[in-house]
Simulated assay, not measured.
Amino acid sequence: MTSAQTDRAAVPWAHTDEADCQHASRILEIVGQRWSPSILLALARGAQRFTEITTVVAGLSSRMLTLRLKQLESARLVERTVIPTTPVSVRYRLTPQGLDLITALQPIAGFVQRWEPRDRS
């Protein structure tokens, strides 16, 4: 990397302090847990109900989905809405922060597609 490239790469970090890094670490810790990215992706693609998410995310148990949804909700990435019908209906959706995070994760997904070999078995 040339000096000019290094300088350009550092610019986005010019206004980042330690508190920002610690907050980013907390969010990445939640998002980095197993199943969280798949749940966020399912919601970004239109899944709204609990059963829709479990159908779209193969191998995800109901117990784990409940746990992850609570974590994502407490991080303000997912919003839970109870619809007072009989029986009660619950819908999940990404918050504006969750939608923004999906956008921020796209370059990471591109990196993975370019550099991480897929298990073809």
Rank of each mutant, 00 (worst) to 15 (best):
R76I: 05
A58Q: 14
V56K: 11
A10Q: 12
L94R: 06
G59D: 10
T66M: 07
G110L: 04
R8K: 15
D20R: 06
D20T: 04
V88W: 06
L28K: 04
S38E: 13
R114C: 08
S25E: 14
D20C: 07
A104H: 10
S89V: 11
V31L: 02
E18Q: 14
S121D: 12
L99N: 14
G46S: 02
G98D: 04
V88M: 09
I30W: 00
S74C: 08
I53H: 02
I30S: 04
I102L: 11
P87Y: 04
Q106S: 10
D17I: 00
V11I: 11
S25M: 12
G110F: 02
A75D: 03
L28V: 04
L43K: 01
L99D: 10
T95K: 04
T2D: 15
A24T: 07
S74P: 02
L41D: 14
L65F: 05
A9E: 13
L41G: 09
A19R: 14
R49G: 05
P84I: 02
A109L: 09
T16N: 01
A24V: 06
L43H: 02
L77S: 01
W115F: 11
I30H: 00
P87G: 02
L105M: 15
Y92F: 12
Q48V: 03
D17L: 00
